[in-house]
Nucleic acid binder design. Structure first.
Lengths: 230, 230
DNA sequence: GTCTATATCGGGATAGAC
DNA sequence: GTCTATCCCGATATAGAC
């Protein structure tokens, strides 16, 4: 059994992602773990400290994944990156969802978040440049930077977008996984025009791999899944 | 002088966008207008009713802008569309920022929001198809749908993204306008690979038109503005 | 480290006068 | 339509025993 401090973080993360931090009280978290509210406050001096600790964890994980690798990259490396990064951002989705409030109430977090985004984008650019050197994508520096920002925003916002369309089913493992995969599909489409070489050769296969089929899309999005003109 | 009911909505919108709905109490809104809290509750039975009314307003405005036009389109039409739609989504940015909470607490809004997104995407697809017919863009149906969803998510999330990097300066008219324009630039980059004909001819000009210069970017984003490898 | 009991506080919302 | 005064409630956080 892991220690209480960690278990509180795990429980809080699950509840925050599912219901939104605003709708999860410290009592809920304690109740979920079968411990008392007092005990929770023994480990974290307040709710914001829990959020802050979750941010730390999230940042560490994501920045690790964003380490610019040595040597040339293959398209499999590239997909591995995407999977990991997207999954990590999905895991920390409550943070992006209620970001405005967290930054509003915690000036320290505000500064740390800004640095975090800067770091992430810097590393992301490094990776994209490596991909370009490896002949997997072709784009000017300006195109690369715009693509990078769009990728970041989309990856960070996708969970919130899907949650808006399915507030009730969040927390269902299978469906959550489907939504995440569809997010990867959207990112693939984002950079599709810039792919070259073996990345381009595998584009269609990757699209098929991640795109949800009609029935799954239908279940997740309803009419949004298969947009049609009126 | 417009009626109190409308003034409440206007004040609430401004405060919500600036500080986040969560950080704006009904007393703040009343105080901002120089009216009493009781008076506010005479016009709206609770805070959620204000949010709901603002959503109505927002939806009406956006769906009007998304009406599929008659006849072929020019690239100027296209930019006009973008300007209007992005400005409208910027105007309603607090809604997208705290969407999770609003949908959580108001089941009616939940359903109406979903229909709204479906409608918007359907109309958006209609417009994109019209643009394709007019020879301004070239893309398969699948590419068009993915592009549409990415555009929507980016447009809806851009204000939240920028706010996260500049929580303090929100509310400043000039800077807000700069951030909005940079958002349009990002959207232009999103669809750049699919542009054809006169839209393509004007691409560079449009990028220059909307992209903020280095000093402005620097002021708005700091290091994020000019991402560099480490 | 963990519990129970409780203090505190602030925002949402109402009652009733004017 | 608008005001003042106030209630209510729930969530955060603490005190002190075990």
């Amino acid at each position: 059994m892991t220690d209480t401090k960690t278990r509180i973080l795990d429980a809080a993360l699950a509840l925050f992602n599912r219901f939104g931090e605003r709708n999860v009280t410290t009592n809920h978290i304690a109740g979920e773990l079968g411990i008392s509210p007092g005990n929770l406050y023994y480990h974290y001096r307040n709710k914001a400290a829990i959020v802050s600790a979750l941010f730390d964890r999230y940042r560490e994980h994501l920045l690790t994944l964003l380490t610019v690798p040595e040597g040339p990259l293959t398209w499999e490396d590239k997909m591995g990156y995407f999977e990991g990064i997207l999954a990590s951002m999905w895991e920390g989705r409550f943070l992006h969802r209620d970001l405005a409030h967290f930054l509003h109430q915690d000036p320290v977090l505000r500064d740390r978040y800004k640095v975090f985004v800067e770091d992430s984008l810097a590393r992301g650019l490094g990776i994209y440049q490596r991909l370009r050197d490896s002949g997997l994508i072709e784009a000017s520096d300006e195109e690369l930077r715009a693509l990078l920002v769009n990728t970041w925003v989309l990856a960070a916002s996708w969970p919130g977008f899907t949650h808006g369309l399915n507030p009730e089913i969040s927390g269902d493992e299978t469906l959550d996984r489907g939504l995440l995969r569809q997010g990867i599909y959207q990112i693939i489409c984002l950079e599709a025009p810039y792919l070259r070489g073996e990345a381009l050769d595998h584009l269609d296969a990757m699209k098929r791999e991640y795109r949800l089929d009609e029935t799954a899309l239908d279940r997740l999005f309803g009419a949004v899944g298969q947009v049609r003109s009126e």
